[in-house]
Design a protein around this nucleic acid. Structure first.
Length: 260
DNA sequence: ATGGTTGTGGAACAA
């Protein structure tokens, strides 16, 4: 099975590119983030025409997560138990959708950005990751040998080498120790990142501003964490850097994972 | 030059 994750930064603005990527890359299952639409606005027809069904969770023009698949999708869940809320009045955001496909429990995740270390959104980000860890501990306990993949835009660069200039990130989010520790704590639920060893030195995101992509000044923030049973079946991974090129590109590139 | 771009929705906010 070929599984990919991609922050598409508006599925309506990029539906032609996304479907073309699916067909060109031979991706069976694509987890999308930042679809930026409600469920009733999702462009299902274009995916159906290419042979993919889609489950989507979108509540507004912000966030939005989906899973497209040419294999049947089962047991769909929008959000996970204990997921923190945001805003006033407090409400759940569309940042997680799970479905079982080909025996693999796939979660498409859009971790809160954090914005700044002194912003309430940063605490929200840490709480969100802690709640995800608690949920994942429950999934592991319920099915220790299960195949689970948590993929998406984590908005965290796990290592200094995952940003083009760590000095430029002094005092910023995405590289802070609490964020990195919150991500690393998912190890307690048996989860490990599976793409890094196949994609050394690769970035997955480049800001639209300041010629970041032509200069290859990017970040590795799109990650795939899997259970032990699934990690043993990962045979390869790559970042489809070409999808960041040209007019109409998302600011993220797809991360593609091959599973035996 | 204290910005730089792109998205949504149609001003301001998010990333």
């Amino acid at each position: 099975m070929r599984l990919a994750t991609w922050n598409v930064n508006s599925v309506r603005a990029r539906v032609d590119r996304v479907v073309a990527f699916l067909e060109r890359s031979g991706t069976d299952v694509l987890a999308m983030q930042e679809t930026k639409c409600r469920d009733d606005q999702f462009p299902h027809l274009a995916f159906h025409a290419a042979g993919y069904e889609v489950v989507h969770h979108g509540l507004s023009q912000w966030n939005g997560v989906a899973i497209a698949s040419r294999l049947p999708l089962e047991d769909v869940e929008a959000g996970f138990d204990g997921m923190p809320t945001w805003g006033e009045p407090a409400a759940a955001e569309a940042r997680a959708i799970g479905a079982t496909v080909g025996g693999v429990r796939v979660w498409s995740l859009y971790v809160p950005n954090g914005r700044a270390l002194d912003d309430p959104h940063y605490r929200y980000k840490l709480d969100w990751l802690a709640a995800l860890r608690t949920a994942a501990l429950g999934w592991q306990a319920a099915d220790p040998a299960g195949a689970v993949a948590l993929v998406g835009d984590w908005n965290i660069a796990p290592l200094d080498e995952d940003v083009w200039d760590v000095a430029a990130f002094a005092g910023a989010t995405h590289v802070s120790q609490p964020e990195r520790e919150a991500l690393a704590a998912l190890r307690d639920a048996g989860l490990t990142e599976v793409t890094r060893r196949f994609t050394p030195g690769a970035y997955t995101y480049w800001d639209y501003k300041q010629l970041r992509f032509p200069r290859n000044e990017g970040m590795r923030i799109d990650l795939a964490l899997t259970s032990p049973a699934l990690a043993a079946r990962v045979t390869g991974a790559h970042v489809d850097r070409d999808e960041r090129k040209g007019k109409g590109a998302s600011d993220h590139a797809p991360v593609v994972i091959d599973i035996d």
